[in-house]
């Protein structure tokens, strides 16, 4: 069981507080939604988690192990995978190759083995490809796109490939940054099932998303950010009735 824990995390850029004393946690097997208006600090929180931005105050831990302050690749090796809001696949690699790169750090075949044609290396390679095909199938990328370069794949497939690549790392924590952006309702429903099944395998999932039906349908808990502060958290039902949340999204009533 893994728990990703944010404790009074604060980030300031100069005088601007992008995040202010944010505390919440994501447990393995759970999907926690992170919502909030544009500029609320959602992506900043993902960047803090993955080591792109160092927190000014507070701590981020995974099972008590400190993440904040470590470098990007070290945090990834600790088991934190992510997808990108503005797709960042390896453009001139095929879908298969993208997934195989995702597995770089969990491969156990000896690097020198490839130079002496060690049979174990060939077996590991076949297993790797087999697993990659399983993941591509699982996220729902049509078979005829598996060998095409990522940059020529349809937009929806690119979003799915982001997830397949992240899963290839066998992560303990998965950070999804707007995985359903630009998808139609039918595709979004598929995404919801996928997210639930990932959590069902014991992964702690943090879902940043604007699509409310997807958030309500897939999250166990929801945290709401506004101007860098956590203004509410609870079950989807609780949060959607919270007056502070309604105010943040719709603006307060003008008192007359």
């Amino acid at each position: 069981m893994s728990t990703l824990e944010y404790r009074s995390v604060g980030v300031s850029f100069g005088g601007v507080h992008a995040l202010d004393s944010v505390t919440f946690q994501v447990e393995s097997g759970h999907v926690v939604g992170l919502i909030g208006p544009n500029g609320a600090g959602k992506t900043t929180l993902i960047n803090v988690t993955t080591g792109v931005v160092a927190p000014t105050t507070g701590s981020v831990t995974l099972d008590g192990e400190r993440l904040a302050g470590r470098r990007q690749h070290q945090i990834a090796r600790a088991g934190v995978a992510r997808t990108y809001q503005n797709i960042r696949l390896f453009p001139r690699m095929t879908a298969m190759q993208n997934v195989i790169v995702g597995a770089t750090r969990i491969r156990h075949d000896p690097d020198l083995g490839a130079f002496i044609f060690l049979p174990a290396v060939r077996r590991a390679r076949l297993e790797l490809e087999e697993h990659a095909r399983y993941l591509l199938h699982r996220v729902g990328i049509p078979r005829d796109q598996w060998e095409s370069n990522a940059n020529v794949m349809p937009y929806g497939s690119q979003r799915r490939l982001e997830i397949a690549r992240a899963l290839a790392m066998r992560p303990r924590v998965l950070l999804l940054d707007e995985p359903a952006a630009g998808m139609n309702p039918q595709e979004t429903a598929g995404m919801q099932a996928l997210i639930r099944s990932i959590a069902g395998e014991g992964v702690a999932v943090l879902l940043v998303e604007h699509d409310m039906p997807l958030v309500m349908g897939s999250c166990d808990r929801v945290a709401v950010l506004n101007f860098g502060e956590l203004i509410a958290q609870g079950t989807p039902g609780e949060v959607s009735r919270d007056p502070a949340v309604v105010e943040a999204y719709l603006g307060s009533e003008v008192s007359s």
């Binding site: 990007q72 690749h73 990834a76 992510r82 960042r88 696949l89 390896f90 790169v101 770089t104 690097d111």
Partner: peptide, 21 residues
Amino acid sequence: RAGWAIAAIREDEFAAASFGI
């Protein structure tokens, strides 16, 4: 693995880092 890491860095250094490279 080293070869894959090299290729990934050529494609997108930043994304490569988020996969432990």
